[in-house]
Amino acid sequence: MEGTQLAEPEISKLEQTAKELRRKILNLIFQAGSGHPGGSLSATDILTALYFGGILQYDSKNPSDPKRDRFILSKGHASALMYCVLAGAGYFPDEKLKDYRKIGSELFLSGHPHPKTPGVEIASGSLGQGLSVGHGMALAARVDNLDYNVYVVLGDGEIQEGQIWEAAMSAVKFNSNNLIAILDNNKVAQDNITEDLKDLEPLEEKWSAFGWDTHRIDGHNMKEVMDILRLPLHATKPRMIIADTIKGKGVSFMEGQTAWHGVAPGEEDLQKALKELE
């Protein structure tokens, strides 16, 4: 793998950041009384690497900087993760998080993201749209002669949507190598495990056949996540990073459980979970 390797202390610092984020996410969903813990915890390491590992180029004090890298959380139900990351990145103070899912929220911290919230590029919540939106932004970089990248995090259940495959073909047609998709392959959807709902494998073969520069990593191994995100862009192809993850990662009784897709923990479960994340 090209690029300089990260030193071990930096990796363990990111791992610590991810752990703190997981605690914050669970607290946030608990105090809101609703939300999606499973799919937030599975993508936590990916977003930690992007925002705090020096991958994404952004200035939280100037969210509309035209040269910024774009990030799209296409699986918008992981909004608790998104808002905790944005607060951590300095887009708004932590205390604003108390408005999450509350009526009158000043920063519009809705159940699914919306661009009224600083740092959010587009509304999501209806699955399957974010890859196309990200591709539009990637095309705009070329029109404007700017060299920013666009990162889109997709859910595995989400890629059952046909529009994902339309976008997959479009990005290859336009040689949009500044589009990087990361599949949070946590293998569990709301109803069922994804394999039973509608099997997605063989994922690498599919994305490769569609013409993407495809990689597969352990989405909870911070070193692997960082290494792949630091890989120089492909000359022509958009990049798909299939990150194998675990739904509810970090909390033993949530891991791999459909039941924790869209349910807030009660007081007792919260305390148990936080203890595991110490």
Binding site: G136, E166, S170
Partner: peptide, 18 residues
Amino acid sequence: MGISEADMMCTAAGLART
């Protein structure tokens, strides 16, 4: 964008947001 209106609509949104 080829015959893929849904993809076109969101690609247009992405372009617009820049």
